[in-house]
Computed example of a mutant assay.
Amino acid sequence: MEIQSVGEAFVRPRQVLTDRTALSSVRRWTQAVSEADGVCVLHLAEGVDPCELTAELREQGLRASPNHVFRGQPLFFGGPASRPFPTPPIGGRTHRSRSDVVVGLLDTGVSKHPWWSGSEWYARLGPQEADAMEGEQAGHGTFIAGLLTRRAPGVSLRVERVLDADGVTDEATVVRALHRMRERPPHVLNLSFGGHTFDDRPPPLLSDALGALGATSTRTVTVACAGNTASDRPFWPAALPFVVGVAAVDASQQCRAPYSGYGTWVDACARGDWLTSSYLDVGEFGGYAAWSGTSFATALVSGAIADAARDEPARPWIDRLLDSEETPQIQDLGVLFPASL
């Protein structure tokens, strides 16, 4: 995947996302258009800057964005927790009765594991939803799936692979996956990836797609990671006002993990350090690992929402929790979700 750096943001070179309303306005700058699942990707002529064209289209009132590159957010720097470590087998929680709650998981896919052996949701997965076995973020989706199913026993996962083996995706891929989810929207949607935008403004096509899911009959609650940026610069999609943005706290569950994003746009936080979960059965790993990052704090919050949704709709429950003055909060990190694994 070709990547162009724009400040601290990354975009696909010579690509702009838009909807059909802008096609006539961009014809002279466009070599080709690929349209699928609710989004048009404009492939620009040589020398056309996607950020400059985006700004021009927005001045005309059109919905446009460079094709931003997003990445999964496990921790890859800053100490001994910077990669997954093998652990002995971990006992799962006592199984509860099957829940009707569905959690959407857009990630690297999910690998076979004893924790969901025989489950209906895993039996429905095809080869295209299998987790990557090699790459910097191979096992990322499997690790998150374990956190979700332990925190919310009995839930079903709806898995779609949008991240490659190195944890990289782009905005067009994500928007198209979200569009396909509208027919059967999940109750909770976990997005443990993200990135900055070239102008620090919300990406409109991604915002539209997530907003449409939140407006469905199930009123999907989207939960996204605040990023391992150690800064207060908005990280998308977590910084969208209708998305639950999640930061990471350290093992004490009292202080921000040094790598975590933070700021007024963050809604919630959970432990992100040295969590243990399911992993690939490969090499020195026997299907279990310890890992750190806002990716995994996000899964704990998604799981808590999904577990509560067994008894009441997810959206009213999380809105009430986030708005309550009695809920424990940490400045610039939002409401604290205590780890209960």
Rank of each mutant, 00 (worst) to 15 (best):
D267C: 06
Q254H: 06
A138P: 01
A165Q: 13
D250W: 15
R63K: 02
V246I: 05
G135T: 08
M181D: 04
Q128I: 08
G245R: 11
W274E: 12
W274Y: 11
H68F: 13
G287E: 04
T276R: 14
R315E: 10
L178Y: 15
L206N: 10
V246F: 00
H95P: 08
V103D: 00
G47F: 01
G79I: 14
R58M: 03
G109N: 10
G334M: 03
V162G: 10
G303F: 04
R176W: 12
D281W: 04
P86A: 12
A226G: 15
R256Y: 09
P316D: 06
R124M: 06
A299S: 15
G167K: 00
L157E: 01
R180L: 15
P50G: 08
L148W: 03
L105A: 04
A212N: 06
A239R: 15
A308G: 06
V39T: 09
L17K: 00
V175N: 08
I305H: 08
C225P: 05
Y262P: 13
D311C: 07
V33C: 09
S295C: 10
G263A: 03
P114W: 03
C51Y: 00
A289Y: 11
V155C: 15
S340M: 03
S5N: 14
I305V: 15
G72R: 01
P234N: 11
W265S: 14
V301L: 06
P313M: 11
P89G: 01
E120C: 11
P153K: 14
D200G: 03
V175W: 05
D19M: 07
L333Q: 12
N67I: 05
P153H: 05
M133Q: 15
F296A: 06
T21S: 15
S340C: 08
P153V: 02
A215C: 10
L213T: 02
Q331G: 01
A339I: 00
Q254T: 13
H68T: 00
C255L: 07
P50R: 10
L205C: 04
A289P: 12
N67F: 04
S324Y: 06
A226I: 06
A132G: 04
Y288E: 13
L206W: 08
A257Q: 09
P338I: 03
L157F: 09
A45D: 00
D166C: 09
L75I: 14
L42D: 03
E160W: 09
E171L: 13
Q254S: 06
P114V: 08
Y279V: 05
P50Q: 11
I330P: 00
D200R: 13
